[in-house]
């Protein structure tokens, strides 16, 4: 129990005192996860719309496949990205291994299935009556698509929040392709892993609490946006 309490006290201390190293790590975590989420959303929301609004053979199978990839372990993605970005790998020449860029690449791959799948679900959830009304009022195909995306925006934002949550909370990718380099690629989850292995359980717990705090703030902000 004392460990839990000390962790909480330490978290509050670190947040109030704005410990520079902790703030830097937290800021980096946030920046990397936001970058991944923005890039992922920019790619996935239009692609999901295209999948949703078009009829083609194997569409169901494709959606099932996307949903299957929700559960890909982060270490597997980490491993593949590592092999690609390693100096001897196909993209080794870019020199991205052990940089924040490598983490962003991994996280985008991680959240792509979630963003695609949940956006497709969101679009599918739009009430048919709205579509019928729009069609009867003479809406064109494009106008209908825009209407559906607008109607589904709550669920789409929920998908984005979900993607962000998965990105900021993952450990495997950051550890394997980021390398947990102090002052460069150390993020909250890798710092927790390191501090635990060093025996600083309280600091590790404090970092965990800060991670949850960041997630809370981001969710409040996103919900505010959603409610406008």
């Amino acid at each position: 129990m004392t460990e839990l309490w000390n962790g909480l006290v330490k978290a509050v201390e670190l947040i109030i005192s704005l410990d520079p190293e902790v703030m830097q790590i937290a800021g980096r975590s946030l920046m990397i996860a936001v970058s991944s989420t923005v890039i992922g959303s920019v790619i996935c929301i239009p692609v999901a719309s295209i999948i949703h609004f078009n009829r083609f053979r194997g569409k169901r199978f494709l959606v099932s496949l996307i949903q299957t990839f929700y559960s890909v372990p982060t270490v597997v993605i980490g491993l593949f990205v590592f092999v690609f970005l390693s100096n001897t790998g196909p993209l080794g020449g870019l020199g991205f291994l052990h940089t924040p860029v490598a983490i962003v690449i991994g996280q985008v791959i991680l959240i792509t299935p979630i963003l695609l799948g949940l956006t497709i679900s969101a679009l599918s959830g739009v009430d048919r009556a709205i579509l019928d009304t729009a069609r009867s009022l003479g809406a064109s195909g494009l106008q209908m698509a825009v209407l559906v995306v607008k109607e589904a925006r709550f669920a789409v934002v929920a998908a984005v929040i979900m993607g962000f949550g998965r990105a900021i909370s993952e450990l495997g990718i950051s550890l394997m392709v980021g390398g947990n380099i102090r002052g460069f690629t150390r993020v909250i989850t890798t710092a927790i892993s390191l501090e635990t292995s060093k025996g600083d359980i309280e600091l590790a717990m404090a970092l965990g609490i800060i991670l949850i705090f960041i997630a809370l703030v981001v969710n409040i902000v996103m919900n505010r946006i959603q409610q406008r």
Binding site: V38, S41, V42, K150, R153, V157, I225, R228
Partner: peptide, 10 residues
């Protein structure tokens, strides 16, 4: 307006 706001923020 809401959608525009989201896009602007992003």
């Amino acid at each position: 307006a809401g959608a525009v706001l989201i896009v602007v923020l992003l």
